[in-house]
Amino acid sequence: MMSLLEVKNLKKIYTTRFGGNHVQALTDVSFSVDAGEYVSIMGESGSGKTTLLNILAALDKPTSGDVLLSGKDMTKIKDKDIAAFRRDNIGFVFQDFNLLDTFSIKDNIFLPLVLAGKDYKEMEQRIKPLAEKLGITDILKKYPYEVSGGQKQRTAVCRALITNPQIILADEPTGALDSKSTDQLLHLFGKINEDGHTILMVTHSVKAASHAKRVLFIKDGVVYHQIYRGNSGYDEMYQKISDTLTLLTTGGDKNA
């Protein structure tokens, strides 16, 4: 069976404006994600996590390598079509929510649908069940500055889901939340995954990662290691991840 997302030999080199310095953010990254999977990518600051996510989200282009989503090479999509492709196929959840203060919660959720030129009736139909599942029905008329961080993030999740994307990309989704909201959100992600959505989450929170079914570790621009949850519980998974991270930072030279 073909994977939903396939990343092959991804390489990204940043060049400073006048071409003087080269910074290698991604050296050689390859992995694949099957439909229905829940994958976390972990790594320290500067390991290339964010660069990877930006490329997966088609916000940035790799220096070399391919990204295939359902067999379609995202790196080859023309600039003018890329926004529509992103809108229709990828759902985003960001660390800082990225909600617009100029729109109500409801209009924030509608934003991708409006951009896609959908009918108002259809939008209303789509939002109802989603808002109920995410527990934000009561705040739809409010504005982002009037609700809590957890509610903002659930709004962002709702916005990501409303287009029925092939994959949900989450960038440190719990980074700006308190522990209670974090638990709620991770629980929600589990539920969404059970409903059949594919989730790819970038994080350096062990707790967040422990909810995933598979965890990839990135170091110095390459996928260094990966662990599967299998049948283990959250606590066991948490321990495994912690151990791996310790190994990575202390004696983790691959060739040692």
């Binding site: 809108r87 960001f94 617009l100 991708p112």
Partner: peptide
């Protein structure tokens, strides 16, 4: 900032 967010959500540059 606003337009960055919209771009991420899928607003083409032309628009």
């Amino acid at each position: 900032e606003r337009f960055e967010i919209m771009q991420k959500v899928g607003l083409p540059k032309k628009d």
